[in-house]
Amino acid sequence: MNKVFLLIAMLLLSGCQSAVQSDEYQNMTPKIDVYNFFDGRVQAWGIVQNRNGELVQRFKVNINGSVDGDGRLVLDEKFSYGYGDGVKHRIWTISKNGSGYVGSAPDIATTAIGTTYGNALRWQYEMDLPVDDTTYRVVFDDWMWAFDNCSLMNRSYIKKFGFVVAEVTIFMQNTGANRDCTGGLH
């Protein structure tokens, strides 16, 4: 009986893992360029769902991106919530690292590592996430896909002990003036 219960539990938990495969995106266009996409004003809209699919947060983000004198991309993010609550302000500092990126922010516990795969970017880091009166160290496994030069979709898997405990879906659009939004889906 214990073996049957263990087998069923393993099958149920295996369905909680993200199934994104990086090789699928290697030849897709447009190639993702984080510095180009986040240069200027970016508007974002998103939701957070718990492991049961229930809505936990609904939010908007105003992002102002610029490259500083040291060649680092600085993202100044301001959040507002239509449902739930969370961080109000975050400043990311991102640098190129070979064909990928590294980044940090004051409320992020580890260095974020970004690896590009054609039109996709995998962005991974750990964060101390406050929930009610407790803080949990979780792993963010973000996947961003470029649709064109102005639109990105981000899907984040928030993991604890290797299991997905929540998912974040964000749509982003660069709203910069005179921006060419071609080069992708039409």
Rank of each mutant, 00 (worst) to 15 (best):
G114L: 07
I108S: 09
Y117I: 02
T93A: 00
S80T: 15
S104F: 06
S95D: 02
G82Q: 14
T111K: 07
Y101G: 10
G114W: 03
A105D: 09
G82E: 15
K96H: 15
I94R: 01
N97A: 11
V74A: 00
S99Y: 09
V102A: 04
T115R: 13
T93R: 00
K78C: 03
T116R: 01
V74I: 15
K78G: 03
K78V: 09
G103F: 00
G84K: 09
W92F: 08
N97Y: 10
V102Q: 03
W92M: 01
G103R: 01
R90V: 13
I113P: 10
K96P: 06
A112C: 07
T93F: 00
G86K: 11
T110W: 07
K88W: 12
L73H: 02
G114V: 14
K96I: 15
D85P: 07
I113K: 05
S80I: 12
K78S: 06
Y101H: 14
Y101D: 14
V87C: 13
A109R: 13
V87I: 14
E77D: 06
T110G: 01
G114H: 04
S99C: 09
G103D: 01
G84F: 06
G71N: 02
Y101P: 14
Y117D: 02
D76V: 15
D107K: 10
Y83W: 08
G114F: 02
G71R: 05
V74Q: 00
G103N: 03
G103C: 10
A109W: 11
D107E: 12
L73V: 14
F79S: 04
R90I: 13
D107R: 07
G103P: 04
S99R: 12
G114E: 05
G71E: 01
Y117M: 03
I91W: 03
H89I: 10
R90C: 10
I108R: 05
S80L: 12
I108L: 11
I94W: 01
K96C: 06
Y101N: 13
G82Y: 15
L75H: 07
Y83K: 10
T111Y: 00
I108Y: 04
G84M: 12
K88L: 13
G100L: 06
I113D: 05
A112W: 02
L73C: 11
K88A: 15
G114P: 07
S95F: 10
F79H: 13
T115H: 06
I91R: 02
T110S: 11
T111A: 02
K78D: 09
R72N: 14
N97Q: 15
A105N: 12
G82S: 10
G98W: 06
G82T: 11
S80E: 08
V74W: 00
A109G: 06
D76L: 09
L75W: 02
I108T: 13
D85S: 13
A109P: 12
A112H: 04
L73M: 08
T93D: 01
N97I: 07
A112S: 08
T116L: 00
P106V: 13
G82P: 08
Y117N: 05
S80Y: 10
G103I: 10
S80R: 15
G86Q: 10
S99E: 13
